[in-house]
Amino acid sequence: MELALKDVNGELQDFFSFPFSKLNSIWKNYLDLVRVKQENKILKAHLSQLQAEITTYREALIENGRLKKLLQIKRKRPEKSIVANVVGFDLASWRAIITIDVGKKQGVLKDMPVLSQGGVIGRVIEAGMTHSRVMLVTDYNSRVAAIIQRNRARGILKGQGRGGCILDYIKKGIDAQVGDMVITSGLDGIYPKGLILGKIKLVGPGDRAELFQSILVEPAANMDEVEEVLVLLTKKEER
């Protein structure tokens, strides 16, 4: 009898304790949720911090690659040179002119050639004390004495803005082919001989009345993506 009563008691206890245990578990879940929310907040902050760090490292890695390429060029060149960062563009945005963060203080003077990883990108046209302006070879006013590397045909590389450059004054009979390298001839007294300017992209017959071929040249460097450049500190007599 006593045992039977104890069983009934147990059942009743079970029945009455159910809502309390449920309430308890809900409360516990709630507390867990609050803790998870806080944890989530902390982890999210941590994640964004890590993402920022990864971006910084990735950026440093890419920059390192670019600088390594510039360093290779620097080692190959006999002249002294200095690495500079591109910090701005010209207000007249149709002109292909950039501002770099080196100037007379670092030995940069007017008409010094400027290279990037790919090859020649332009020359200094204005040198301030700490900053200089560089006219890119794609600028409409840019002219560079050039030769086709394969057959040594001389011409003038003219800037065409976004369209790249054209190699002018190559006579109609001369064999110029797509893919031929165009290099500096050194005859302009600004760029040393043998620097890469670009590749021939298109050879047209030109006008019937014209004596010369119309040759489109793709510059060696992508002018829109240049971030670091190498200024060759050439002396006037060296050029």
């Binding site: 701005g88 563009f89 010209d90």
Partner: peptide, 20 residues
């Protein structure tokens, strides 16, 4: 505006446009 114009650049094909 001049600072913005001479430092901002749109990517790729729109790079000729500036915030003027």
């Amino acid at each position: 505006s001049l600072l913005l114009n001479t430092t901002s650049q749109f990517p790729e094909r729109l790079s000729f446009l500036h915030i003027d």
